[in-house]
Design a protein around this nucleic acid. Structure first.
Lengths: 184, 184, 184, 184
DNA sequence: AATGAATGAGGATTCATTCAT
DNA sequence: GATGAATGAATCCTCATTCAT
């Protein structure tokens, strides 16, 4: 019987703690020590597993993107018509899983970090491209200029995130779907 | 003839330097020393004028909001019809004055700070309310649910900012106006 | 048939790794973890066998001194005349076994540690005394002031070590022998 | 009247404290905090003036080399004959100014650091080359193979330093001069 | 008005060492 | 015998902030 693998547990706890800490005080003021304490381990262990604060933050972002990606793939797999696919994408953007306060806050923080931090930017770019191509693919059968619509939809989604980060938002999914509805 | 007051010059230089520094390295990594050097003064002087780093950052934000507000008021004064007013508001959001790379970056940074920093949040709230009420006022004669349209337009504007912060954006003004055009 | 004892193997590997590590990065920057990895074991095991980093370093030095001592005894046993004994001692100082780059580096490092670290100093003193008495014994039949010549020869040998540590050295044995030759 | 320049004072105090600290505990265990305390200032100030621990250590070495160089130049200027020049060089090597316990300890430490630290090595190389060329120039009129003699003399000098670092040394100057005397 | 000097507080990071398995 | 897990104690370094001039 294999010894219980504790590393994944610790990593997950640290990632979760990082997201929480970013949400609570911003990644600027998140310290490794506080993240570690929140995860119930020592700061040294956080370094042992991740190597540096930067890598901890990146791991947190990667986690968020991974969760989002997995959920999106799952939703797309069950969607039949282009309309379904469209709705699936938008719905996942605001699904309770990924649209928690904490996640939104971290998400926004990453957007800002991405401006000045290349590795963060790379991660974000990958995600943005994927979202864009998914949107365009779903929109292609439905409208004349799928690229323009996708561009606008993506901006609107981002705008909803930014506003959600500052206060509760009423039905962002509806807002985005309405907007798209007016274009197709 | 009175000697030229030097204080306003210094303050302006520091504010400008702050915005530049935020754009270049993010407010997280902006240091008073670097801001001061960029403004051509000593760090001690920056403190002398503003009292603390926090106040320097707030002054920079206040400056951005003030410039925006002044331009908005000017544009609205010249606008006759509701349609004109609407276009004026949106145009100012993306006017070359306020939509410079540096400003957009700082703007976004403030959004994130606002999440965890009450004074920043207060400033931002004031601005958001003003934008919202201006939009609603202009929209009221033009559509049934001005509040919902204003909400969406504001989100879209924010979304354009967030995207502009990460790369060049093609005609955001047109995007927003189109969106509104579809609703009225 | 007894299973091969593994402990001596591990100890030897760790000692060798320690010397290599000291040569490569200096004992200041040698870490137990790196030494252990180089020896192919875990850092915990290094502690298990030696008890502390200090003891690992001391073991490495002891090893070097032991190798040197053994070779010296061997060479002296085969030497007949005083001249032979003299040459034997000097030759061993620069024999390929002990005058490897790695060993010289470690040797020098120990010299420096000895200044501030009593146990290291004790080891070094024993070695120095032995070298000195060997030299004097060999010199006694050959010159008037064997102590002074031994002192100078020892200094010259040390000087060759220090220079060898920083770059290749041309025939140090000849240099020392010449020097002694001029005194006897 | 110029404000009293305090920077050079602080720098000098820190350099002196660094040498003392190296002598007392070795550069491995010298901490910026301790060096600063010994100099009567805060650790932060040490960083303010030197930038990093590495640079503090290098400054200390540079200081030692500078003092040595200055003394050597002075002594050479007063020396007439080649013999005088030779004696001047050797004398300076063991002059009370530079041959204090503290300095010798630091010197030796630098030798060891030089093995693994390129900037230190560069400094040392410059010094070694200068010493060598001075010796050769003085020896040229006096012997057949000035390079070989210089090489040996330099090794002997280094050897005296290494031994002096570990205990008191009896008339190293005489030892070196004797050695050279036998060669010319 | 303006600055260099100076520092305390705090943060990332490293590392020897211990322990449970 | 051997290791990964875990940590406390340092240590370097940064930075906002204060102060004397």
């Amino acid at each position: 019987m294999p010894r219980k693998a504790v590393e994944p547990l610790r990593r997950a706890a640290l990632v979760e703690a990082t997201i929480g800490e970013i949400a609570e005080r911003g990644s600027a003021d998140a310290t490794v020590a506080r993240i570690a304490r929140r995860a119930g381990v020592s700061g040294a262990l956080a370094h042992h597993y991740f190597g540096s604060k930067e890598r901890i933050l990146l791991a947190a972002m990667r986690h968020i993107l991974m969760v989002f990606g997995a959920e999106a793939r799952g939703a797309l797999r069950m969607a039949g018509t282009p309309e379904d696919r469209l709705r699936a994408i938008v719905r996942v953007c605001f699904s309770p899983t990924g649209f928690r306060d904490e996640t939104v806050a971290a998400w926004l923080d990453f957007y800002v970090q991405a401006r000045t931090h290349a590795p963060t930017r790379r991660l974000l770019t990958v995600y943005q491209r994927r979202l864009r191509s998914n949107l365009i693919a779903a929109l292609r059968p439905l409208c004349d200029d799928p690229e323009a619509v996708a561009e606008g939809a993506a901006a609107l989604i981002d705008g909803c995130y930014i506003r959600a980060a500052l206060g509760p938002l009423n039905d962002p999914e509806g807002l985005v779907m309405d907007w798209i509805g007016g274009r197709i």
